[in-house]
Design a protein around this nucleic acid. Structure first.
Lengths: 152, 152
DNA sequence: CCGAAATACTCAGTGCCCTGATTAATTGGT
DNA sequence: ACCAATTAATCAGGGCACTGAGTATTTCGG
């Protein structure tokens, strides 16, 4: 008695959604490159030479996880990591040709996968789906970093 | 060039949503008990004496993860694990008094947390949020276990 | 100019999550 | 009554995610 209905718990739903996505990704996109790894490649295609911290900020990976992900992508020859001559604390990241090729190949497959994944929703519902999740996630991230008040 | 917009990728959104949830959970609910652990406790409050595999099915945890989660909850004295006298392969799970108390305490806090988490959405939008995620996740799980045809 | 504070990254430790292999117990066909 | 297939759980191994501590480098106040 007194058990709750988990299907109205956003955390539980988020976890199930991610699991479902993980499985489909493995089947339809890649068993080598994971979705977070793809996010990193994608960021570096748009902005080559970014440092590790900034990439992590863009894709939503913390410093530690970023460090691991980068080292895996580097080991596979998909990106190069060079110490910033301007600031010796930073490492600058840049995709290799192989990295760019891999990104291109996966872009096509992820598009196909997203279609299958979202097929149960109409187009209008898909827009809504994105918007609602984005609003909840953004607001929660806001709670975390208390506004970072504009100085001045 | 040719980079895609991750904010229309459901996998990326799902990951961000879960991360946001994880952080808020730690602040507002518990640093000891995680959300998947709570899901297990919740299932066993409703159905004491369930075996490990079935609990995993109910909450969406695979056999391996289940094994780990159960061992952690057992170590903390929140549940007991007894070999099924009817079928020696199974372990039957049952909350201890401490486990029931913990579940009760967390139920209150998760309710509060869910309110804060979902605050950016109106009530109608919250319903929609649940429904859309549920439909996508259910459909993807369907893809995985090909229908398990009713054996007539 | 020098030492304290801030910043970028790494490492150790914990937990979730999956697959494939292994072990123990049960079931089912002959 | 037996042996093969199935089933429940564990283990090994890889990856994501967080915190707190440690290292190296830069910045900034006096």
């Amino acid at each position: 008695m007194a058990a709750v209905d988990l299907s109205t718990h956003p955390g539980h739903l988020a976890r199930r959604l991610q699991q479902a996505h993980y499985l489909l990704w493995n089947v339809m996109v890649s068993e080598e490159i994971t979705s977070p790894q793809f996010a990193v490649l994608n960021t570096l295609v748009a902005e080559p030479g970014l440092d590790q911290r900034t990439v992590g900020e863009r894709v939503g990976l913390d410093r530690s996880t970023m460090s691991e992900v980068i080292s895996r992508l580097g080991r596979r020859g998909l990106l190069d990591k060079v110490r910033d001559p301007q600031d010796g604390r930073r490492f600058l990241l840049r995709l290799t040709e192989e990295g760019v090729r891999t990104h291109r190949k996966l872009t096509v497959r992820t598009a196909r996968m997203n279609q299958v994944f979202l097929a149960p929703l109409s187009e209008g519902e898909q827009e809504l789906f994105f918007e609602l999740i984005r609003r909840v996630a953004d607001a929660a991230e806001e709670l975390r970093s208390p506004a970072e008040m504009v100085r001045q």
